[in-house]
Amino acid sequence: HERALMVNRLQKLTRMLRVHPDPKWKQEQQELIKRLK
């Protein structure tokens, strides 16, 4: 369940980064990718 939330968050971040590349979001995205591996 928590994994699904993280995947959701990651997808949302990816969409937001396409619109507005924010370093903070980029960092969070990298963190999520690490944790999901």
Rank of each mutant, 00 (worst) to 15 (best):
V7K: 10
L17A: 02
W25F: 11
L10V: 03
R35D: 02
M16Q: 04
Q30T: 09
A4Y: 11
R15W: 06
K37H: 10
L13E: 01
L36H: 01
M16P: 00
A4E: 14
L13W: 00
V7D: 03
K12T: 10
A4H: 14
L5M: 14
V7T: 03
K24M: 07
V19M: 10
L13V: 04
L32N: 00
K12D: 11
R35A: 12
E2A: 11
Q27V: 06
R3N: 09
M16Y: 04
K26H: 09
T14R: 08
L17Q: 02
L17S: 02
H1Q: 12
R15M: 08
K34E: 10
R18P: 00
R35G: 03
L32M: 02
M6H: 04
H20L: 08
Q11Y: 09
L10S: 00
L13N: 00
E31M: 11
K37L: 13
R9D: 04
E2H: 07
L5K: 15
Q30I: 10
R3I: 15
H1I: 12
E2V: 08
K26V: 10
T14D: 06
L5D: 10
Q29F: 13
P21E: 09
Q27N: 10
V19N: 11
I33V: 05
K37V: 07
R3F: 14
W25R: 05
T14M: 06
D22N: 14
R15A: 14
R9T: 03
R15T: 04
W25Q: 05
Q30G: 05
P21K: 08
L36M: 04
I33F: 04
E31L: 07
P23W: 05
L5C: 15
H1K: 12
V7Q: 09
E28Q: 03
L36I: 07
E2D: 10
E31R: 06
K12V: 13
V7Y: 13
K24D: 08
R18K: 10
P21N: 13
P23M: 03
E2F: 08
R18F: 05
K26P: 02
R15I: 10
T14P: 00
A4Q: 14
L32W: 02
K26W: 07
K37N: 11
L32K: 00
K26A: 08
K37G: 11
L5H: 15
K34V: 09
V19L: 13
R18M: 12
D22E: 05
P23F: 03
L32R: 01
W25V: 12
K24S: 07
V19D: 13
E2G: 05
E28S: 02
K34C: 14
D22R: 08
P23V: 05
M6T: 04
R35S: 06
K34F: 07
R35W: 12
K12F: 15
A4M: 14
Q30R: 09
R35H: 06
R3D: 07
Q27R: 10
H1W: 14
K37I: 10
R35K: 14
V19T: 13
M6L: 13
Q27T: 06
L17M: 04
M16N: 02
R18C: 15
E2C: 15
N8R: 15
Q29V: 14
V19W: 10
V7W: 15
P23Y: 03
K34H: 09
E2M: 11
K37S: 11
L10Y: 03
R3Q: 07
R15E: 14
Q11S: 10
L17T: 01
M6V: 08
H20T: 08
K26L: 13
L13Q: 00
I33P: 00
L5T: 10
P23C: 04
W25G: 05
W25Y: 10
W25K: 05
E31P: 00
L13F: 00
R9S: 03
M16S: 03
P23S: 05
L17W: 00
V7P: 04
E28T: 03
N8W: 08
E31A: 08
V7F: 12
R35Q: 10
H1Y: 13
L17H: 02
P23I: 04
E31I: 08
Q27A: 14
M16I: 05
N8Y: 09
Q11R: 15
W25T: 06
P21D: 13
L36R: 01
L17D: 02
E28D: 02
R9Q: 09
R15G: 05
N8T: 15
I33W: 04
K37Q: 15
M6F: 01
K24Y: 07
R3V: 11
L36V: 02
R9K: 06
R9M: 10
P21C: 06
K12W: 15
E31V: 04
D22Y: 08
K26C: 08
K26Y: 11
K24F: 06
N8K: 15
I33A: 03
T14I: 10
E28C: 00
T14E: 10
K34N: 07
Q30N: 08
R35P: 00
R35L: 14
Q29R: 11
V19R: 11
K24W: 05
K26S: 04
H1N: 13
K37C: 15
K34A: 12
L5S: 14
K26T: 05
R15L: 07
L36E: 00
